[in-house]
Design a protein around this nucleic acid. Structure first.
Length: 415
RNA sequence: GCGGGUGUAGCUCAACCGGUUAGAGCACUAGGUUGUGAUCCUAGGGGUUGCGGGUUCAAGUCCCGUCACUCGCCCCA
């Protein structure tokens, strides 16, 4: 293959059935979001790098490692969005949405991360995103989880996915737990894996999902988040649980489920599957009460989730059937000209029409059948002379001659 | 960024121990009287064996490098 005639590493072309799967996921998502009273927002796929740096922390070397950052011709430092929450939070501030009180938004589109591709992880990938901004109530979290559950049910994959829930508490609880965890692991520093020793300095909560066997044994005796939640944090979690119980969404408490960054508070949840290789999270989200303040906006609570479209698409067993087209099959030059006009008119009135201009009749019919056409409209020069067409039912294999003027009524009568 | 595996036609794969012109199935195109979908028959297009170098009389096959894909790790906003 010519060296540059290929997609850039970590990107891919999506077409055919794969494209239909992705579209179906987005269609369902949109429908569910509208039912929940969410409004669509579309933010730019790039922002000033500052927008992401502020939310993710200047010091994090991960940020510079995994972001697609470049300088544009005007000398501005730009980054392709690695996720959607920061952009939406920025829009919330830029657009003065505080005036509306609570806003409920949904979005979807491409995200970019410069990382080594592996199964279901690409450098350009696509996410669904919902956010409730301005609501500090646990009911907002419940509503978002309910929305996710409805989406999974509409997609027909709820049975292959389970929900795990945790609370990271408020900043006080979180700091207390972090301290306890650090203290515990310090005593085992020598036996910790190399990766986890580094985490101990940077991000001790991350040790909780270490894959190292030795680390995992140490984890059994490690302090539990739930023991460090203060009264307010416990009450918050109880409200979320009560809400989920009431709407009937099943979940499992997993107090090893964490979020690394400090602006995350209270609720953290993931819908997981075991059907997709190593990384089983299909939908992940939680509350980020400290994010907008940290970005430089007014202190504003927020909660939301994101889901990988590719991953959801892979889980769908069956797509809804496509609408079946009508195949226009002309034979002969004059008929071909006329057939284009008939197809044009039908399409203008809403019919789904495909045309077959090549090959003999046999091949054209075969192609029509392959495209799942319901009817073939055969128009040869002899039909043309009589002002009729042959309408063939491709399922029953019966056909009849009808007047051209009758075509639309015939098609309507036999949908 | 780190480690393992794999690269032959659009897809799935074959080609002995290194041996002469790299094959098959599927798919695609055309034909089997410009009028009927299957099956069938015939023909055809499509490959610098990922790329570059090396060893050899001879490389798809062995060696080195590189690129890509893939699985995992780090990380996951």
């Amino acid at each position: 293959m010519v060296s540059k005639l290929r997609p850039v590493r970590g990107t891919r072309d999506t077409w055919g059935e794969e494209a239909r799967r992705a579209t179906h996921v987005v269609d369902c998502f949109r429908s569910v979001c509208e039912r929940y009273g969410f409004g669509e927002i579309s933010t730019p796929i790039f922002e000033f790098s500052e927008v992401f740096r502020r939310t993710l922390g200047e010091t994090s070397d991960v940020v510079s490692k995994e972001m697609y950052t470049f300088e544009d011709r005007g000398g501005e430092e730009i980054t392709l969005r690695p996720e959607n929450t920061a952009g939406i939070a920025r829009a919330y501030v830029s657009e003065g949405m505080q005036q509306y009180g609570v806003v409920k938004l949904y979005a979807f589109g491409p995200m970019f991360r410069y990382e080594r591709p592996q199964k279901g992880r690409y450098r350009q990938f696509h996410q669904l995103d919902v956010e409730i901004i301005g609501a500090a109530e646990p009911e907002a979290d419940v509503e978002l989880i309910g929305l996710a559950q409805t989406l999974l049910e509409d997609l027909g994959i709820a049975g292959r996915v389970h929900l795990e829930l945790n609370s990271l508490g408020d900043s006080e609880s979180r700091a207390a737990y972090r301290g306890a965890l650090t203290k515990y692991f310090k005593t085992f520093q020598k036996v910790l894996s190399e990766d986890s020793r580094a985490r101990l300095e940077r991000n001790p909560l991350r040790i909780l999902d270490s894959k190292d066997e030795g680390d995992r044994q140490l984890l059994e005796k490690a302090p539990h988040m739930s023991d460090y939640l203060n009264a307010a944090s416990k009450a918050f979690l109880e409200r979320v649980r009560a809400g989920l119980d009431e709407i009937g969404v099943a979940y499992k408490i997993n107090d090893r489920l964490v979020r690394g960054l400090d602006y995350y508070t209270h609720t953290a949840f993931e819908f997981m599957t075991t059907d997709l290789g190593a990384k089983g999270t299909v939908i992940g989200g939680g509350r980020y009460d400290a994010l907008i303040g940290q970005m430089g906006g007014p202190e504003t609570p927020g909660t939301g989730w994101a889901a990988g479209i590719e991953r959801l698409a892979m889980l769908i067993a069956e797509l809804p059937a496509l609408r079946r087209p009508i195949a226009m099959i002309p034979l002969g030059d004059a008929a071909t000209l006329k057939a284009s006009a008939i197809a044009y008119r039908l399409r203008g009135k809403g019919w789904y029409v495909i045309t077959a201009f090549r090959g003999n009749l046999k091949k054209r019919l075969a192609r029509a059948a392959k495209n799942k056409a319901r009817y073939a409209v055969i128009l040869g020069d002899n039909e043309l002379a009589k002002g009729v067409v042959t309408l063939r039912d491709l399922d029953s294999e019966e056909q009849k001659e009808i007047k051209l003027a009758q075509l639309e009524t015939e098609l309507t009568a036999e949908p």
